[in-house]
């Protein structure tokens, strides 16, 4: 059997090679389709590091997987609403990005944030809003109102989609009914929210995550949506516009952080610093069509992004927003019950 030594030999070589290359690795855990491929190539070339991106589709799935351990990820990219949970559960390394070289580039409003005061754990990835995308060929009325979702006008009945993100739908509804707190324990208000949502659902065609194709094709006349897909839809069909719920709409931010059990912490730090470079942040924005948190990235951005109404919030609605977060377990429990009644 002459093949055997060859097999063992190549296995040993492979192990050696694996070890040699291990210093140059970085494993990123990110939302789907949420990093520009050019950016990965650029980072790999600059730092001689092999980057592997693994994607997830739900914050809760990602949390469960990271809690379970043994995942091998170095960097987690995810919602600000989950950052306090990750910190509390001890899943993030206190990597002090605020002492990194490029930290000075961050836009001041994204430095001292509620979910990570002073940025000891996280750096901004991208941020955006949740609003209502409307095909103005199919609906001529006012689009800057959550009434399109909750008191649907006759023209839109049976043509509205609502993205099934519990916390965003609950928030929009609470503010629509005059609430002032995303995490309210005002039970009478919550009963009204439930009744509103259960009744409103009769006019919804579906509760689905994918919206882009349906909006462009005219299957939906309107949908609750994130601003990124809204802009992509408008670029394909100019009749599509993005409305802001005047009663109150969520602003959210996704962030990058180094995990407590990262194997390649040094490369992860290089990556964090790399992402705060204005030019790199712009590459990310151009690909995803979301705004980043780095000041001075504008000169590197595509011109159509700079004045896009989906990204640059109109002055009249700039103040009508609340920041997305996760509520206390007790309140989340009530929200879950309401959500089951809505989705059934």
């Amino acid at each position: 059997m002459k093949t055997k030594p060859i097999i063992w030999g190549s296995l040993a070589l492979g192990l050696l090679a694996g070890q040699a290359a291990a210093e140059g690795q970085l494993n990123i855990y990110n939302w789907g389709n949420y990093i520009a491929p050019d950016l990965v190539t650029k980072f790999e070339a600059e730092h001689d590091v092999k980057v592997t991106v693994t994607e997830y589709d739900s914050s809760d799935t990602a949390l469960a997987k990271i809690q379970a351990g043994g995942h091998g990820f170095d960097i987690w990219i995810g919602s600000s609403a989950y950052v306090p949970i990750y910190v509390q559960e001890g899943l993030l390394a206190e990597s002090l990005p605020n002492q990194m070289e490029n930290f000075a580039h961050l836009a001041p409003k994204w430095v001292d944030v509620e979910f990570d005061p002073g940025r000891s754990y996280t750096i901004p990835w991208l941020w955006g809003t949740v609003g209502i995308t409307v095909n103005t060929d199919m609906y001529k009325g006012e689009i800057n109102t959550a009434a399109l979702l909750f008191d649907t006008p006759d023209e839109l009945k049976g043509k509205v989609n609502v993205v099934p993100e519990m916390r965003d739908v609950m928030g929009l509804a609470i503010y629509y009914l005059g609430g002032t707190d995303l995490c309210t324990d005002d039970k009478e208000l919550l009963v009204k929210v439930r009744d509103l949502l259960v009744k409103a659902k009769e006019n919804w065609i579906s509760m689905d995550y994918s919206t882009l194709e349906q909006m462009v094709n005219g299957d939906y006349a309107a949908t609750m949506d994130w601003n990124g897909p809204a802009m992509r839809a408008r670029l394909q069909n100019p009749a599509i516009h993005y409305g802001y719920a005047a009663t109150g709409y969520p602003t959210w931010m996704d962030n990058a952080a180094i995990l407590a059990d990262a194997q390649n912490a040094e490369n992860a730090r290089l990556f964090m610093n790399f992402m705060m470079d204005p030019e790199n942040a712009a590459i990310l924005s151009n690909f995803t069509r979301y705004a980043n948190g780095v000041a001075g990235s504008e000169p590197f951005m595509d011109p159509e992004m700079l004045d896009a109404p989906e990204i640059k919030v109109p002055a009249e609605f700039a103040e009508n927003t609340y920041f997305a977060r996760t509520c206390s377990p007790e309140i989340e429990k009530i929200y879950s019950r309401i959500w089951t009644d809505v989705k059934k």
Partner: peptide
């Protein structure tokens, strides 16, 4: 599926 995902129960 909802209980194991978004509703965390």
């Amino acid at each position: 599926g909802m209980q194991f995902g978004e509703l965390r129960n």
